[in-house]
Design a protein around this nucleic acid. Structure first.
Length: 514
DNA sequence: TTAGGGTTAG
């Protein structure tokens, strides 16, 4: 089926029947006019019914594609409602999943509730994947209680008990966002009402939780319990998590001991991830040469290093300023048939920048281009930092100016790196220029940086510039620190610019401090 | 996308 054509005809259909339906679909109750509603609005006039008959029937697959392709969530919802108006069409798991995902992506939570409400009364067979996806979205939006709510909705709507996968997903989302209280509540609920028999995966999440808090003793306590149960016996992930925890706490010797114990006592073989945890741990602990040996060891054991392993080790060399070895590592990985990615090149570029060789970065960028590896925001933030550290703020400003035209998205960090540097070196004219550039692009500096720039402008006797900057910043919601006001007013008076001083005082009166 | 891994700035 030609989707473009279908989309077009559907749009025409939508607009032709707008008087009856699509225009009255609202966000608050987006399904009020759906076929599940007892009172339908007046039937469309006959001519429109005729038009509908001529319109191509839209299948579930086509509806899914249409909803996916629609950018505007309101329109997506209209499509969802409209297709269900077709004779014999009932939404299925796929169309519900697609509309819910679309609404969740655009954070239309009320509309989500309305769709979920409709699902309760639909006889369609649903799968719990819909709810796992919603749980992830709610977690990302820091709506942690709603994560639990989605879990609880599984049984009534899917009409099956939540799987172990659902339980792990929910628990992991709560733990990863540090919702310990909710996680405990969740576990209690599982024990009571679902008679849960936890598997290794679920207990591993708890082990991770203790490791993250640096509470290794509790982590080991949990593992001791795991060993008593067949259902949750420790596996490679349990050990890797523990080894990572030990490395994070700087307990490298114990990490190695545990690694060996895993192999000899439990006959569990490490994989690339386990080795990477060790490589990283040793690099962080300043033992890069040991990390290098671990990489060689894994090779000798037939475990081929991947791009993660090389970039971790490369970062270790970079942090110690060992550029030559980092470069050799790049060659080695290429010989080994591993394609360096953006992270690897960025790590290497960082090494050039940190060793005061920012000029040579151009060569690396050229190589990246040749290998079709795109330098990203992080890459350029590293370069911006390198330029500033060498006092080449003019070059940094030029880069900031042109990158967006070359398809590189800058973030607030990009501007902050340069603006902070300009403030520190007292290059206030350039600071002023940068402020204009970034505000013109919709980026407001961090309030501390804004405050510092303003104060420095005043101290340098640039009261006029300070005032201009201040007005711009206040308009974007910036509130200077109370102490700074006195300085502005004093500075303006000193420079005999009284009119701006009065205007400033007006601003002061208008700003509310909480 | 069921549990464990790599880059910048702050």
């Amino acid at each position: 089926m030609n989707l473009r054509g279908v989309h077009f005809s559907l749009r025409r259909w939508l607009s032709s029947s707008s008087s009856s339906k699509s225009s009255s679909v609202s966000w608050i109750s987006p399904l009020q006019l759906s076929k599940f509603n007892a009172h339908k609005p007046d039937a469309p006039p006959e001519t429109q019914t005729e038009a509908r008959r001529k319109t191509k029937y839209i299948s579930h697959d086509a509806a899914v594609n249409l909803i996916k392709r629609e950018r505007d969530p309101q329109h997506a919802l209209e499509i969802f409602n409209m297709v269900s108006d077709q004779k014999g069409f009932n939404h299925n798991n796929a169309t519900y999943a697609t509309i819910l995902n679309k609404l969740a992506q655009s954070k239309k939570f009320k509309a989500i509730d309305a769709v979920l409400y409709q699902m309760k009364y639909d006889t369609c067979k649903f799968h719990e994947g819909i709810f796992l996806n919603l749980m992830r979205h709610f977690s990302k939006s820091s709506m942690h209680e709603r994560v639990l709510e989605m879990f609880s909705a599984i049984q009534p709507i899917v009409r099956e008990k939540p799987s172990l996968k659902a339980i792990s997903t929910c628990l992991n989302l709560l733990i990863d966002s540090n919702q310990v209280g909710l996680a405990q509540q969740f576990l209690m609920h599982l024990k009571k009402s679902l008679n849960l028999k936890p598997n290794t995966c679920i207990v591993n999440i708890l082990v991770k939780h203790h490791c993250k808090n640096g509470d290794l003793e509790s982590a080991f306590e949990v593992v001791k319990e795991m060993k008593k149960s067949k259902l949750s016996y420790p596996n490679l992930i349990t050990y890797s998590t523990l080894i990572d925890g030990l490395c994070e706490s700087g307990r490298l010797t114990e990490a190695m001991d545990l690694f060996e114990e895993m192999i000899s006592k439990d006959q569990i073989l490490p994989d690339v991830l386990t080795y990477n945890i060790l490589i990283n741990g040793f690099c962080r602990g300043g033992k890069v040469d040991r990390a290098r040996k671990i990489l060689d060891f894994m090779k000798s054991q037939g475990c081929n290093p991947n791009v993660f392993n090389y970039s971790a080790l490369m970062n270790g060399f970079c942090k110690e300023g060992r550029l030559e070895e980092a470069k050799e590592l790049l060659d080695e990985m290429k010989r080994f048939g591993i394609k360096p990615d953006t992270v690897v090149y960025t790590t290497l570029i960082n090494c050039y920048c940190r060793t005061g060789r920012v000029d040579e970065v151009l060569e690396v960028l050229k190589e990246m281009k040749e290998n079709e590896c795109k330098a990203d925001t992080v890459t350029f933030n590293v370069i911006l930092g390198g330029l500033c550290r060498e006092g080449r703020t003019e070059d940094a400003l030029k880069l900031l100016d042109k990158l967006p035209y070359e398809g590189i998205y800058l973030n607030k960090g990009s501007y902050r790196i340069v603006l902070n540097s300009l403030c520190q070196t007292g290059e206030l004219n350039k600071g002023k220029e940068l402020l204009r550039l970034m505000m013109g692009r919709g980026f407001v500096p961090h309030y501390a940086t804004s405050n510092e720039l303003l104060v420095r402008l005043c101290e340098a006797g640039m009261a006029g510039d300070a005032t201009m900057a201040l007005f711009g910043l206040v308009e974007m919601g910036f509130k200077p620190l109370p102490d700074s006001w006195a300085l502005f007013v004093e500075s303006i008076c000193r420079e005999r610019k009284l009119l701006p001083a009065f205007e400033l005082l007006d601003e002061l009166v208008n700003i509310e401090y909480n």
